[in-house]
Design a protein around this nucleic acid. Structure first.
Length: 686
DNA sequence: ATATCCCAGCGT
DNA sequence: CGCTGGGATATT
């Protein structure tokens, strides 16, 4: 007989991967109850690891001879808050991630900080008088500051609203570049801070590059010890110190990237998601593949906090939801800056095809070239936006310029390393000897301009100019970033070449140009047009930062008639939205459908083929019944081989995104082993 | 993470 | 029949 009634059974989640098909907790013996959230050390199959207590119960006389191991040691009682446990559960359930893996992200490495953080702020506490529109926005955001129970939100993001109207506690703050969105947020925070000095505020940013200016704008209003900065480059010890100060309530404002949602907030009252449209909020490369925007929404629900999504070009999903009153839409008027009226930047769409007629084969048009040299003469600066996606080639017909497209699903065909043209979306491989569907030509051109190519071109064209290419390598450390910022401000750099985030990071440029938005425009993704719109909108914010100066924007393209480009050039978001939402509805894309991406990674081609086929058949059987979902045949990826393993992708499209995932499909996904990557609401489908 | 079990393939 | 290696499995 085992089991001692005087003891207690403690259920704990080991911080490791337990297959989703199994129970996520394991039971141990201990002489007293332990509060949920306690960090313990437990033995699990001949090794010791950390775990989180989720439940304690009385022991009982266990049948058979079931022996439980003892909790090895208690590291810290009440280590995780009840709110953190709730959020971890949500992430685990919604994103099909083992609970122990999700919890890992809530547990920082418990090490002493080597140095005390010494953050210096540019204390530019200039008092700016808000416009009446801005003041109204502040009032709207803060009017609900008293805790009020929220009619239960939909359990999962992107699932639309309830029949009954929920209290507006989520806002979409929509205003063009320099319309004062940050001022509104700062003032909302200050107002709430006066109401109750214990309130905590969270500012989420999509990328590291944007952290510093957020610290300057938000952090300056708080004492240095009330500010925490959370991102992956913060040293472990310092991160842990911040974690403790957030938990104790000492820290009042938390500025960070997506991982900041895991912090142990004590009295969270307002969450601001800046650059709401940015896809970097979604973690796509490892578990949990969560979207910080969805997590923040859950976090706001758990803490009964206000949530503000801010953007100059909101995501289609957010705007859609605001029109359905799931978010309250707050619009700031165009072209108004706090103290001076701005002239609209001159925007020019340059038809790059005409360059070929005048025998210019450079990726830089005559027009852009002359604008750059004019900028150099004026000693003003230029920013050239090059999509890093340029690595991916797409193919155009050399004689008519049409993009090669898949006959089955209409997406652009991509030249594969194996030497064939493929549709990476639906897996169809067209004929070996392709003909252009339009003009029957068999001569194609693989398109793709990278940052290096433009850098070389600039060196050739402007030998005296100071040129800086900013890409992933440069962003690796914060010091390098700071240097670029300073060099650019002090005019030590004339031309910067980089991606979209650099446009938002830079202190502004007189000339901003999109070198090749076409790559993005015809990229085989349902949201490619949305991305293009966002990129052009980033050029506007880059140029606007120079205050009253008259800026210039150049967009190079082979599709000057393209509606997304033309509306972006006019900053006409509403019409772009109308166009895009119709397309999404007609073709059943988000927010009218929901995608799930399953990727299998294996060694041998036969095994990969077989496994993918098997799961595909199971899914077909489960989902095919009611016509509510569509399962795409296992396809190859843009890079079929990765880290020596072959890969196959299965896309599930749920046609009724507001309904819960069908139970039989969920069950199949739960049974997939560790060789499968599960991505709910994926950003990319290739 | 890793001991253990199971099975295929091989040699005697 | 026994030995070996590889792969899947379970973990309180």
């Amino acid at each position: 007989m085992s089991g001692n009634p005087k003891n207690f059974i403690i259920d704990a989640i080991p911080l490791t991967r337990i297959p989703l098909s199994r129970q996520q907790y394991f039971s141990y013996e201990f002489e007293r109850r332990l509060p949920a959230g306690t960090l313990v050390n437990i033995s699990l199959f001949r090794r010791f690891l950390n775990g989180i207590v989720v439940n304690s119960r009385d022991d009982f006389h266990r049948l058979g001879n079931i022996k439980l191991k003892k909790i090895a040691s208690i590291i810290e009682e009440n280590f995780l808050t009840a709110e953190q446990l709730k959020l971890a559960r949500f992430i685990s359930d919604y994103y099909f991630c083992p609970l122990g893996v999700a919890l890992k992200f809530f547990v920082p490495r418990r090490v002493k900080a080597r140095t005390t953080p010494l953050t210096t702020y540019h204390l530019t506490q200039r008092k700016i008088k808000l416009t009446s529109e801005q003041q109204t926005a502040v009032n709207k955001i803060t009017k609900n500051y008293l805790p009020r129970r929220l009619a239960s939100l939909p359990a999962s993001p992107g699932q639309g609203g309830q029949a009954g109207k929920p209290e507006a506690r989520s806002y979409l703050l929509f205003g063009p570049a320099s319309s004062g969105k940050t001022e509104v947020c700062v003032n909302a925070i200050l107002k709430l801070k006066i109401q109750n000095s214990k309130f905590q505020f969270l500012i989420l940013l999509p990328e590291l590059t944007l952290i510093q200016q957020a610290i300057e704008r938000y952090g300056a209003r708080f004492a240095p010890e009330e500010v925490a900065v959370i991102h992956s480059k913060i040293p472990k010890g310092q991160l842990y110190a911040y974690w403790q100060k957030i938990k104790s309530g000492k820290v009042k404002i938390i500025i960070g990237t997506r991982m900041a949602v895991f912090a142990p907030f004590k009295n969270l009252k307002l969450i601001i998601i800046d650059e709401e449209q940015d896809a970097s909020f979604k973690q796509w490369d490892m578990n949990p593949r969560y979207d910080a925007r969805a997590a923040a929404e859950k976090l706001a629900e758990i803490h009964e906090a206000e949530l503000v999504r801010g953007s100059a070009a909101p995501s289609i999903e957010a705007y859609y939801r605001s029109l359905r009153n799931e978010y309250k839409l707050i619009k700031l008027p165009k072209l108004r800056i706090t103290n001076c009226e701005l002239r609209k930047p001159q925007v020019e769409i340059v038809d790059i095809r005409k360059e070929r007629w005048i025998k210019n084969y450079s990726p830089v048009s005559q027009k852009l070239r002359s604008e750059i040299s004019r900028a150099l003469e004026d000693k003003s600066r230029a920013f050239l936006l090059v999509n890093r996606r340029g690595m991916n080639t797409l193919t155009t017909c050399s004689s008519c310029g049409k993009v090669l497209r898949c006959g089955r699903c209409g997406r652009a065909l991509i030249y594969d390393t194996s030497g064939y043209y493929r549709c990476l979306y639906c897996g169809k491989n067209p004929d070996l000897f392709l003909k252009c569907s339009h003009c029957k030509s068999t001569v194609f051109k693989n398109v793709g301009i990278g940052t290096q190519k433009i850098e070389k071109e600039m060196e050739k064209m402007f030998p005296g100019a100071k040129i800086k290419r900013v890409d992933a390598d440069t962003i690796k450390n914060l010091k390098g970033l700071g240097k670029i910022y300073q060099d650019f401000s002090r005019k030590k750099i004339d031309i910067v070449i980089g991606g979209q985030t650099i446009a938002k990071f830079l202190p502004g440029a007189r000339l901003a140009a999109a070198i090749d938005p076409d790559v993005l425009l015809i990229f085989p993704e349902y949201h490619s047009r949305e991305k293009v719109f966002q990129q052009i909108s980033a050029l506007f914010s880059c140029v606007r930062k120079l205050g009253g100066e008259n800026g210039k924007i150049i967009i190079q393209t082979s599709y000057p008639e393209n509606a997304a480009l033309r509306l972006a050039a006019k900053e006409d978001y509403e019409n772009f939205y109308r166009l895009e939402i119709n397309e999404r509805q007609n073709l059943s894309y988000p927010p009218f459908a929901k995608f799930i991406k399953l990727i299998f990674r294996g060694k041998g081609a036969a095994e990969v083929e077989k496994t993918a086929q098997k799961v595909y058949n199971e899914l077909l059987k489960a989902g095919g019944k009611n016509g509510r979902s569509k399962i795409f045949f296992p396809a190859n990826l843009a890079s079929p081989r990765l880290k020596g393993r072959l890969r196959k992708i299965i896309i599930i499209k749920l046609l009724d995104p507001r309904k819960n995932l069908p139970a039989d499909i969920a069950e199949i996904i739960r049974r997939l082993d560790a060789n499968w990557a599960i991505d709910i609401d994926p950003i990319s489908m290739v």
